[in-house]
């Protein structure tokens, strides 16, 4: 058997395991789907409510535009955060189940491990976000006549790689802090949510946060996706948003793998693999 076949089979182990886990935990996935749909609807209804805000004065805001603006924010965020959580789950779920020693003892390169988890995370996030989109489309009459759907999907996929890098870095927290590491990963997602303009344009933020927004891949993904779906920006004009996220992914993924390898070495040095959170 060639090394490549060996590593592909090992990589598929994580995909198959995650599919089996989803089948077994289907009720939890259903609950999470209902929560995600309700969350997207609740935020998007703010767009419809804007006209009635402001002391009863009729608003000049285009509510259809606002609803889609907010809906895109929730959907893109659901997609990126689902990827992030599945990647950080790389270790979190193994801590929870107590299988971490068996997985890390197997002759699997960490890049193979990450590749399997990444493939699954992106595929499942696309499926999950698609389900939320379908459900919300039943509630709102969304005018996507101008939308460039191919460009929007391309933008999402390009942005997903940088989130994989961030997820790999965050996954060291459950490795180093068995008891609370998984909860600590929420800080990454909270900060990105704040600065990336999920529900508002980045230029309403204070100057310091605007500077941080430049460093968040989600800022580009959101801006690019909104322009393709709301304004029909042609795919070739998306490059201005795609190259920054690809560059971030190219830096964050190898950096994440390096950080992870250092953390794994530290955990093996200090005996932290043994303790289950």
């Amino acid at each position: 058997m060639t090394t490549l076949t060996y590593q592909i089979r090992a990589s598929y182990a994580f995909v198959e395991r995650n599919i089996n886990l989803i089948k077994r935990y289907w009720s939890w996935e259903l609950v999470w789907l209902v929560y995600s749909i309700a969350d997207s609807l609740a935020v998007s209804f703010i767009g419809l409510g804007v006209g009635k805000l402001g002391g009863g004065n009729p608003s000049t805001a285009d509510t259809n535009y606002l609803v889609i603006y907010l809906l895109i924010g929730t959907l893109v965020w659901r997609f990126l955060s689902t990827i992030f959580y599945w990647i950080t789950n790389l270790i979190g779920i193994e801590r929870w189940e107590g299988t971490i020693e068996y997985t890390l003892m197997a002759p699997v390169r960490r890049i193979t491990h990450m590749a399997g988890q990444t493939f699954f995370a992106i595929s499942y996030s696309l499926f999950f976000t698609g389900m939320v989109l379908l459900a919300t489309a039943l509630v709102f009459k969304i005018d996507l006549s101008k939308a460039n759907l191919l460009g929007g999907t391309l933008m999402l996929l390009a942005g997903s790689f940088s989130f994989v890098g961030i997820g790999v870095m965050a996954s060291v927290l459950p490795l180093l802090f068995p008891e609370r590491g998984e909860q600590m990963t929420h800080v990454f997602i909270a900060l990105l949510l704040l600065v990336s303009g999920i529900y508002y344009p980045v230029d309403v933020l204070p100057p310091v946060l605007q500077k941080l927004a430049v460093l968040s891949p989600a800022t580009y993904v959101l801006e690019g996706t909104r322009r393709t779906l709301l304004e029909g920006l042609p795919t070739w004009d998306l490059w201005q948003y795609i190259w920054p996220v690809l560059l971030m992914g190219a830096v964050l993924i190898p950096s994440g793998l390096w950080v992870f390898s250092m953390a794994e070495r530290y955990a093996k040095k200090t005996g932290k693999l043994h303790r289950n959170g």
């Binding site: 076949t5 089979r9 198959e16 886990l21 189940e97 107590g98 299988t99 002759p107």
Partner: peptide, 29 residues
């Protein structure tokens, strides 16, 4: 290695757990 704690994905079946374990060692499904 077999340890004193039989560490598995508890919701998965023996078949699913062992398939996962064997694939990590490059074995055919």
């Amino acid at each position: 290695r077999v340890s004193v704690e039989a560490s598995f994905f508890k919701k998965l079946s023996p078949m699913e757990n062992l398939l996962y374990g064997a694939r990590l060692y490059g074995q055919d499904g």
